[in-house]
């Protein structure tokens, strides 16, 4: 560890370890986020039969968007892994390419989800129609918001990856961004199983 000369507290000291304390701290955040999603899953499960005069899961939810969304997000988790490998090998060009590919796939996912929500709203299936639709939009929307936040973070990391010297703090941040992105795909596995596939089975 290098000595810090200036009196100003250095950010580098806080997050300069790739697999140490900051990674563990980030795991703590991920697990608290998992608890948030778990409660939204529980809410959805409880609300699922509260359809009132609105449509039930089998009518309101289809696989037309869910299937491509799933494939796109899963592939983006692979390109994220390749970006992490490029970082490991100090290959900046390939890091930028794979990270860029990840963000493009993330944008495609969000566009598909926006089209899906828009189509549902056009049919009159909005969150205020029933408890089931409230639960659906809260759960799937929370995941979409997480991906949106991930896009902002990912763009910042793309700029840092392309322009900075790939120093220890940048590596550490990229490592945590990779964890975050993989985690969002893990949550999506729960969403497509519980919400979409269970929904189509009626």
């Amino acid at each position: 560890m290098t000595a810090v000369g200036s009196a100003a507290p250095s950010m580098d000291r806080v997050d300069d370890d790739e697999n140490g304390k900051s990674a563990f701290g980030f795991w703590v955040f991920l697990m608290s986020d998992a608890a948030l999603f778990a409660v939204l899953f529980a809410t959805y499960a409880v609300m699922m039969r509260g359809t009132g005069s609105g449509p039930g899961p089998a009518e309101a939810i289809g696989l037309k968007y869910a299937f491509p969304e799933t494939l796109v997000l899963l592939t983006s988790t692979l390109t994220m892994g390749f970006a992490a490998m490029a970082l490991h090998a100090d290959a900046r060009r390939s890091l930028v390419v794979w990270l860029g590919a990840t963000l493009v796939l993330g944008a495609v996912f969000l566009a598909l989800e926006a089209a899906e929500f828009h189509g549902m709203a056009a049919k009159g299936d909005t969150p205020q129609v029933s408890g089931f639709l409230s639960g659906f939009f809260a759960l799937v929307g929370a995941h979409g918001l997480h991906v949106t936040a991930g896009m902002v973070w990912g763009l910042a990391m793309l700029v840092q990856g392309a322009t900075s010297d790939l120093s220890a703090p940048v590596r550490s941040r990229l490592g945590r961004f990779a964890l975050y992105w993989h985690f969002l795909d893990l949550i999506w596995v729960g969403i497509f199983s519980i919400v979409y596939l269970r929904g189509t089975l009626g």
Binding site: L63, L71, L74, V189, F192, S193, Y196, L197, R198, L201
Partner: peptide
């Protein structure tokens, strides 16, 4: 993923 979607589709 494909197994799960196929099961939901054909099941």
């Amino acid at each position: 993923t494909l197994i799960a979607f196929a099961a939901a589709r054909l099941g």
